[in-house]
Write a protein that binds this DNA or RNA. Sequence first.
RNA 1: GGCCCGUUCGUCUAGGGGUUAGGACGUUAGAUUUUCAUUCUAGAAACAGGGGUUCGAUUCCCCUACGGGCUACCA
Length: 506
Amino acid sequence: MSKVRVRFAPSPTGGLHLGGVRTVLFNYLFARQQGGEFILRIEDTDQTRFVPGAEEYIIECLKWCGITPDEGPGFGGEFGPYRQSERKALYRQYAEQLLVDGYAYYAFDTPEDLEKKRAELPNFQYGHAHRNEMKNSISLSSQEVEELLRNGTPYVIRIKVPQDETVSFDDMIRDEVSFETSLVDDKVLLKADGMPTYHLAVVVDDYLMKITHAFRGEEWLPSAPVHILLWKYLGWENEMPKWAHLPLILKPDGHGKLSKRDGARLGFPVYAMNWTDPKTTELTEGFREIGFLPEAFVNLLAMLGWNDGSDQELFSMDELIEKFSLERVNKSGAKFDFEKAQWYNAEWIKKLDSARLLESIIQIFKSNNIEVTDQGKLSVVIDLVKDRCTLLTDFISQGGYFFENPRVFDFSSVVNKWTSEKVSFFIAYTEILNAITDHSPSNLEVSFKALAEEKGLKIGDVMLPFRIMLVGGKFGPAVFEIASLLGKEETIQRINKGLDMLSREV
RNA sequence: GGCCCGUUCGUCUAGGGGUUAGGACGUUAGAUUUUCAUUCUAGAAACAGGGGUUCGAUUCCCCUACGGGCUACCA
């Protein structure tokens, strides 16, 4: 068998959707596992929908996920160009070949003609039943057609779908799927602007690029018969790739495909990374920016529709490549569950070591005006607080106070029980901190407890105020770990500040 | 409407002619943690319905219902 070649073929119209990333992922996993090649092809045949920057954005998303194309725009390859707009001239000859062979025809109907026809006939389909009523090279005489062509009348080329055949194919996920051609319409292959539609372009390019396996979303299933027919009519039937129609990712509530709007409505991202629409300047948040690890993102996407049959839920990219199999891809759509998505991220944060997390957290701190001068200290902090973080951005609240004063203080749970004895306890403790040289957590704890006992105070009654003085609230790792890491000067300073704040709150 | 695809706990799913129908997220209760989280233990929670086939169907077949997709000179 020839070498496996798969492609991801997005159209550069905006942010990259979850479902899109999952399609790439399955392509990529399959290609890597089979020792094949993964190709990126930009399907920009609709010039009216072209959005500048979208292509670069898509490539950046792939990079973030750890997916690198073997061929594609900017990646080289012998089958380029990899943007369909740059292949424009190529498609016409195939459309014309179909014309000559009688598998396609010219159609001169204007958009208004079609609109009118659809208004008249609610179930209108441009096909065997009605094509004779339309303005095309089947209904018109050859003289009329020539005349129209000579006058430069705009036209499209449509496939001539046979009246009474059954088209079936073997889907790698759904097994045999079949369609009656009587219900398939004569899709446009070449548009009036000379660009191919998806239907022509996908077949021509998959053929020319020697694609062996084609993965796409289930929403493409209804147009599969057109593509199968085209492979046949172009004489390439034996080289047709194996198809795999992936199940859809659905809205968590209600019904239907997950869309960008659902994310905004329900408060979670749908795009892989932040996307700013260049026209409206509207920003749509991405998984990367709200604090997802690419490891988690890839993992959760893979599990949406696939599993290895065991109870394992956490998979690295390498494990996925090793274990992925199309036979274990589900047929039915999956509702997206953001809670579970977050769980994957929390698991990956716990699983990865501080060295891997360091760089991203420095960046997040930086964009929140927290300056990190001591990376060694940050590593210690990461290990100390990572169990408490679900998103990378949680490190701001869970670890930021090691590098700057807490931004907010919540003394509400101690203010009512605040006494002058406690004040003198903390004053005395700052003196002890000044005096001792061993600032290890255990030694801090020993001296703290000894002092409390001496002053006749319950440990718990002074421990909580101490914590809040240091971190700003009722959270965080062991207090003496924090105090030790903060150092003598900083700890004393925060105690003094806390005493000051409490005296004003009481 | 038509065509195509699908249907196991709330959600993601395992399983597959005879099982206490398993796991995970979430949820509930408890333990641990002098905070919060982690962790641990326990609990509630599912085979859409109806017909077949069969000694026996959640599992195989058919129908119905429900859900989803498509129905553009968009991909």
